[in-house]
Amino acid sequence: MKRTVDVDGAPGPVGNFSLATTDGDLVFTAGQVPETADGEVLRDASIEEQTRQCLTNLDRVLDAEGLGMDDVLKTTVYVVDPQMWSRVNEAYGEFFDDYPARSVVGVTGLWGGIDVEIEAIAAAP
């Protein structure tokens, strides 16, 4: 049965969606953007800093279910400028000991003028 995940310490959704849902076995997160817990959108920050904030938010969402980054099975990374991929990849690598599967999607634009957004599927133990 589907359940919405209650998340404290991460930016809340802007719109009609949940930060994450679960069926008890898998956790599906919404795309995490480079927004701090106090609502500051890091649109003018470097792509590395934006990526780190997305992954920090992702970690907070997973933590609400007692999970961590090592429980992530797959991520999807949306990036506006594929030429920045090596910089995104460098920051991304700081968050995982055991890399999940990953898809990278080049997009023409993201909410609020940001450069990167990351979503994930994680396994509940």
Results as ranks from 00 to 15, higher is better:
residue 101 A to M: 06
residue 61 V to K: 01
residue 65 E to S: 15
residue 51 T to C: 01
residue 79 V to Q: 12
residue 84 M to Y: 11
residue 37 A to H: 04
residue 23 D to A: 08
residue 115 D to M: 14
residue 80 V to E: 09
residue 6 D to E: 12
residue 81 D to E: 13
residue 49 E to R: 14
residue 41 V to R: 12
residue 123 A to V: 08
residue 41 V to Y: 07
residue 93 G to H: 06
residue 123 A to D: 01
residue 16 N to H: 13
residue 92 Y to F: 14
residue 35 E to W: 09
residue 49 E to L: 05
residue 109 G to P: 08
residue 32 Q to H: 12
residue 106 G to Y: 06
residue 51 T to H: 05
residue 31 G to F: 13
residue 18 S to P: 03
residue 73 L to I: 06
residue 18 S to K: 04
residue 24 G to M: 02
residue 73 L to N: 02
residue 113 G to C: 11
residue 3 R to H: 03
residue 15 G to L: 10
residue 80 V to Y: 09
residue 61 V to D: 00
residue 108 T to W: 10
residue 98 D to A: 12
residue 109 G to T: 12
residue 90 E to K: 15
residue 29 T to C: 01
residue 21 T to V: 14
residue 60 R to T: 15
residue 59 D to A: 15
residue 74 K to P: 00
residue 81 D to T: 15
residue 50 Q to P: 04
residue 58 L to I: 00
residue 29 T to K: 02
residue 84 M to W: 12
residue 75 T to L: 10
residue 31 G to R: 15
residue 99 Y to F: 13
residue 109 G to W: 11
residue 100 P to K: 01
residue 33 V to A: 06
residue 20 A to I: 00
residue 37 A to G: 06
residue 21 T to I: 15
residue 93 G to I: 04
residue 70 D to Q: 10
residue 80 V to S: 13
residue 39 G to I: 07
residue 60 R to V: 08
